[in-house]
């Protein structure tokens, strides 16, 4: 077949404008509308954990979705971020809190770099299994060495107040807004990264490593960069999870199940999609609440919590399989298709 030299119809401009407007509208709702109408329950039980998990999803998506390196150790990097921020804040009190968070992210990035080293030689399953080393080692180290938790016997740390300059964010709405600000900034930077040459390098390494090498993509450096950037973002997500959502946290809270949860977020939401991380996180946070409320209403008090928990496990597992089979691109793609249908423009 032959393609004639018709100038491509430049549709990307209006589409970008629509995208920009949508994002602006969402930000307006998130920053202005919700804080004035939402309840504490909404902020504490839904929105704040949603933001932390979405940010972790963004981080993992850079590594797994874009750069194609499957990691089963996300929770370890969340833990590193949380405990690093705690210690920076505790031991260098003169540091502004935001600086502690950035340093915590950098610490997570450093640890991520170390555990990313095997990716230089390993691929696929071997790499996935090797990331479990991070999961178990970090959890062990944080529990074993009291220094990390300021010698708390169970390794528990309590959140310091969230402060920027002289403003303290100590209400439910405040913690939500604090998280929202950080998530917005980091998500924007992550989005920029995916659109730049570096992001294209990630995808090139994922799609065809040999071709990438021949073209001159620094494959090893790209992989390590993916690990570092991803761990930075996941580390900051860990800070939010620990300080803005839970307020008190122990290493066991960052276990393998949490790692899988982040992985499920990006599978359900959509691999290699920033939007997907948010959709997936929303789903993972809201869905269990819906399910237990539904179970409670349909069956009254007869079912015990164990049954609800097991049912959730089954449904989540089944959904993972379903998405992998029916819609590997996740909720993000479903959303795109729905939007296209609503827009009514045939493509």
């Amino acid at each position: 077949m032959s393609i004639s030299v018709t100038p491509s119809i430049e549709r990307s401009l209006p589409r970008a404008a629509i995208g920009g407007l949508t994002v602006a509208a969402i930000l307006f709702i998130a920053f202005v509308v919700l804080p004035s109408v939402g309840s504490d329950y909404l902020f504490e039980a839904i929105l704040t954990p949603f933001l932390a998990l979405a940010l972790a999803g963004v981080g993992l998506n850079l590594l797994t979705g874009y750069a194609g390196q499957v990691s089963l150790g996300s929770a370890a990097f969340m833990a590193v971020g949380a405990f690093a921020a705690y210690n920076f804040n505790l031991r260098v009190p003169e540091l502004p809190f935001l600086v502690s968070i950035v340093l915590a992210g950098l610490t997570a990035a450093g640890i991520g770099l170390i555990f990313g080293l095997p990716s230089l030689r390993l691929r696929g399953f071997y790499l996935a299994v090797s990331t479990l080393a991070a999961q178990f080692f970090v959890q062990w180290a944080l529990t074993k060495f009291g220094w990390f938790s300021n010698d708390n016997p169970s390794g528990i740390i309590n959140a310091p107040p969230l402060k920027i300059a002289s403003v303290t964010f100590d209400t439910a709405v405040g913690r939500y807004l604090f998280s929202l600000g950080i998530v917005t900034v980091l998500t924007f930077l992550a989005w920029r990264l995916t659109r730049a040459q570096t992001g294209r390098n990630f995808i090139a390494v994922r799609d065809n490593q040999t071709a990438a090498r021949v073209i001159g993509v620094p494959v090893l450096r790209t992989k390590l960069l993916a690990f570092a950037v991803s761990s930075f973002i996941i580390g900051v997500a860990g800070v939010l999870w620990a300080f803005a959502y839970l307020r008190t946290v122990e290493p066991a809270g960052f276990n393998l199940d949490r790692s899988f949860q982040i992985l499920f977020i990006i599978i359900i939401g959509g691999l290699a999609s920033i939007r997907g991380a948010f959709l997936g996180a929303g789903f993972i946070v809201v869905f269990p609440l819906l399910l237990s409320r539904l179970g409670g209403e349909l069956l009254g008090g007869i079912v015990d919590s164990g049954v609800v928990e097991m049912s959730q496990r089954i449904v989540i597992g089944a959904l993972i399989i379903l998405f992998l089979i029916a819609e590997p691109k996740g909720l993000a793609e479903l959303g795109r298709r729905a939007a296209r249908r609503l827009g009514g423009r045939p493509t």
């Binding site: 399953f125 089954i314 989540i316 993972i320 399989i321």
Partner: peptide, 16 residues
């Protein structure tokens, strides 16, 4: 790797 992720989901289903 897709199949691996599917077995991860499968493990949740079977355990549950």
């Amino acid at each position: 790797i897709t199949l691996f992720l599917a077995t991860l989901g499968l493990s949740y289903v079977i355990e549950g």
